[in-house]
């Protein structure tokens, strides 16, 4: 991944970028690399090594010999369905979450001037971003469940029975709604600082130059925010993809997502098949890698466009 977009171009990063653009040993920036050592040491010891043992099991059969046969085990309708379910809910909640988070960030950051409100919303989103699993599922059951507050209120005050009309909280749409409770705050938290910078730097400049609101957004605002928006999309997708507790707590066995299958294999219950669990984990890592690569490609292109 050479930064060819800046290679040779005049600008602050021109010369240095040119130097690090090649990959020969002499021109690798050793002091800078050293500064990143703590992170990589931590990541390798505390993250890669523990996971490597699990992932290695994917290539091992029950007797301990090397094999690729385990991968055949995931070619089942159940795994395919679970994968589609996981992909669907991750994609839908990532897009919805990012859009709504962006709207909220723009509303709170630019169109409302109260610092107190902004601070309250920021801290609320910090907490809400990890409100998940059983407490979140119960909160939604208490609101929209069969005897939830809103359900009962709608029935008593307006005679509307949402369950008779076909609504079901323990379904894909109910799960999407519940997921948004933490997806939107994460998107907001990521996008908010970027929106902050947007306000101070560019608004006045654009107004001075006579740009309309649409022109401003098309040529200044959105391009500046775009990398952050992409980052939020990727993070939200990963967040939903790897999550299991909320789906389990809300929909039980009605919606199968990949992590539920994974957990069943790893936790050593009746279904216990460590190799299958490892293959599923590897599959998830692969999906994440593809997602990240896509995100990086899009981002490099957008940063090029910005310059």
């Amino acid at each position: 991944m050479k930064p060819q977009s800046t290679h040779g171009k005049p600008g602050a990063s021109g010369i240095r970028a040119g130097l690090t653009g090649t990959s020969s040993l002499k021109s690798i920036d050793w002091p800078a690399l050293l500064a990143t050592a703590p992170f990589f040491m931590f990541a390798i010891v505390m993250m890669v090594m523990p996971t490597a043992a699990l992932l290695a099991t994917a290539f091992v059969d029950k007797q301990g010999g090397f094999t690729l046969a385990n991968f055949a085990e995931i070619v089942t309708p159940e795994v395919a369905d679970a994968f589609m379910a996981s992909a669907k809910i991750s994609a839908v909640t990532a897009v919805l979450g990012t859009v709504l988070g962006l709207v909220l960030a723009l509303t709170v950051g630019r169109r409302m001037t109260s610092q107190k409100v902004k601070a309250a919303v920021m801290s609320f989103c910090g907490v809400a971003s990890h409100f998940s699993g059983i407490p979140l599922a119960f909160a939604f059951i208490a609101t929209l469940g069969r005897l939830g507050l809103v359900t009962v209120f709608l029935r008593k005050a307006f005679g509307i029975d949402i369950y008779a009309a076909g609504f079901e909280l323990a379904s894909f749409s109910g799960l999407t709604l519940t997921y948004l409770f933490f997806q939107v705050p994460i998107a907001f938290t990521i996008i908010m600082p970027a929106v902050d910078r947007l306000s101070t730097q560019t608004r006045e400049a654009a107004e001075m130059l006579g740009a309309t609101a649409t022109q401003y957004w098309r040529f200044v605002g959105l391009p500046i925010l775009w990398p952050t928006i992409l980052g939020a999309l990727a993070l939200l997708f990963a967040n939903a993809f790897g999550g299991v507790a909320t789906a389990y707590a809300l929909t039980g066995t009605a919606v199968n997502v990949i992590p539920i299958l994974l957990y069943a294999q790893i936790r050593g219950d009746v279904l216990h098949n460590e190799q299958l669990g490892a293959v599923l984990a590897l599959l998830m890592v692969f999906v994440m890698t593809v997602t990240i690569s896509l995100y990086l490609m899009l981002r490099v292109r957008s940063e090029r466009w910005m310059k």
Partner: peptide, 15 residues
């Protein structure tokens, strides 16, 4: 059949 699992809280809430 309710798809969710019956915990103490969900029994008490009536779900």
């Amino acid at each position: 059949l309710v798809p969710g699992f019956g915990s103490a809280a969900s029994i008490a809430k009536g779900e």
